[in-house]
Computed example of a mutant assay.
Amino acid sequence: MSLVKTIHRHFIIYKPYGYLSQFSSNASKQQSKKFLGALHDFPEGIMAIGRLDEKSEGLLLLTTDGKMSDFINSQKVEKEYYAQVNGAITDEAIEQLSKGVEIGFDGKKYMTKPCAVFKLDNIPELPTRSKKIRDDRHGPTTWVSITLNEGKFRQVRKMTSAVGFSTLRLVRVRVGNIHLANMQVGEVIAVDGF
């Protein structure tokens, strides 16, 4: 009896704004939506590791290896986000975010775990988003870095809103030691492993 080792495929992608973190859908209400399958001819059995909601963008890992997906989705792997928030965020709000804030999840209250949060000194060099964001003529905005070890549904957006600064743009820039670096929107890179 010979054991055949399964060769898994792995990809990193810069998920564009306006795309769902899935490859297709048969649901009639989603027929007008954009899916990752339109960006590349992915192999059968591919899955997104974690998700980014339709209005979020940035680094998304894809794999055919369910065990790898489970590990990266575990609380052992950090995920870093850059969030552009509405207003000039205060030191108090940053401290609240870092200690944990109460958000709603699945109809219940949830206290987020402590995390690393800091204000970015400069606007990050990111590709222009396909849908324009209001500019500073309508009031200041601030960019912050938020690094989590958890990933509840729309967690970063709910967290910034909980401290009074709604998120205008959200970009995942790092998962573990994999960085978005200089990828372009919609770019797909096949990699040997994570």
Rank of each mutant, 00 (worst) to 15 (best):
M183L: 15
D65N: 13
E95K: 12
K33N: 15
C115L: 09
G186N: 05
F35L: 02
A190W: 05
I72M: 11
T6M: 13
N182C: 04
Q22W: 00
M1I: 09
L168I: 15
R157N: 06
M183A: 05
V144F: 03
D106M: 11
M1E: 09
N149D: 02
D121R: 06
L180E: 03
S28V: 13
L62V: 08
Q84M: 14
E44M: 06
F35C: 02
I146V: 12
Y17C: 00
M47Q: 13
S28D: 15
E44Q: 12
V188N: 09
M1G: 14
M183Y: 08
F35D: 02
Q31S: 13
N122F: 11
K67C: 00
G100M: 06
I94P: 02
V191F: 07
N182M: 04
V85R: 03
Q75D: 13
S28P: 05
P124K: 10
K109R: 13
G58I: 02
P114D: 11
P124A: 08
K33L: 08
T63E: 10
F165T: 02
A93C: 03
E57D: 09
H138L: 09
E102C: 07
A190R: 13
T160Y: 08
A38H: 12
K131F: 15
K55A: 11
G107Q: 02
K55G: 01
E57F: 01
T160I: 08
L59G: 04
L148Y: 00
K33I: 00
S166L: 07
D41L: 09
S74H: 05
Q30D: 15
M1W: 07
A181H: 11
F71H: 14
W143Q: 06
